[in-house]
Design a protein around this nucleic acid. Structure first.
Lengths: 121, 121
DNA sequence: TACGCCACACACAAAAATGTAAGTAATGGC
DNA sequence: GCCATTACTTACATTTTTGTGTGTGGCGTA
């Protein structure tokens, strides 16, 4: 997710779609295994690295770091470092990320409902 | 996206998150380069394979086939085959997929707004 | 007979996402 | 001095996603 070969068709297609519509741009920022879940966990309060790690089942240090970095870069998280030892770093949603709350709630409701419908298959 | 090694940590994490919440389940069904865009194009009318291909910039036969197959399997698309030559196959949204329309519209609005905010960075 | 049409299928290759294992710095407590 | 704590980093390996190129069937048209 970090380093991309900007000349690949894959990359070019991604960019084309990003330019094309805000939906694909959003998917690009929010896609992947952990990102929406991280935002979701931060919905009510700021959390520090280790707290996120505890409540995200199975995530590794490396993946958590990567995802937090990208979310920060993309303007979805604020990162606050407290100069203590051992270190304390807190993450919280940006205003823009908070505007997404109703969207992921709707997605969650749809997912739950759709799963019911799909159970036979 | 089709064949997965069900014993990998990757796969296991995916399943864990799917069980955990409808949001991750939804992301799993809708994620990837093309799926939401395909649904989006089908919002107003059914389209056949070749029509989709024309309006999805850069997609290949193979990717379109794969994505359509999965969307069908996951209950988001109906596939109708007309026994003609050359073949005609039409795709349209299921009821469940139509319930997603407001969600992707909201996502699109958010994406457009967020992109404005992010322009400097 | 040759060709184009359409909706694919197949074998293969490249790129991207995710995971594994180990190590780091600074400090406080024992 | 030794260990625990926290938020990382780095090199590497695996898995998953995406793309490339070619082929197929059956019918209509040239």
């Amino acid at each position: 997710m970090a380093k991309r070969k900007m000349t690949s068709t894959n990359s070019i297609n991604r960019e084309k779609l990003n330019d094309l519509c805000g939906m694909e741009y959003a998917i690009d920022l929010l896609g992947g295994r952990w990102k929406l879940l991280i935002l979701y966990k931060l919905e009510n309060r700021a959390l520090r690295f280790i707290e996120l790690k505890k409540i995200l089942p199975g995530i590794t240090d490396r993946m958590l770091t990567l995802q937090l970095r990208e979310l920060e870069k993309d303007g979805l998280l604020h990162r606050t470092v407290y100069p203590e030892v051992p270190p304390r770093v807190e993450y919280r949603l940006t205003d823009s990320a908070e505007k997404l709350i109703p969207v992921w709630k709707a997605l969650e409701r749809w997912g739950d409902a759709h799963r019911e419908v799909q159970l036979p298959g």
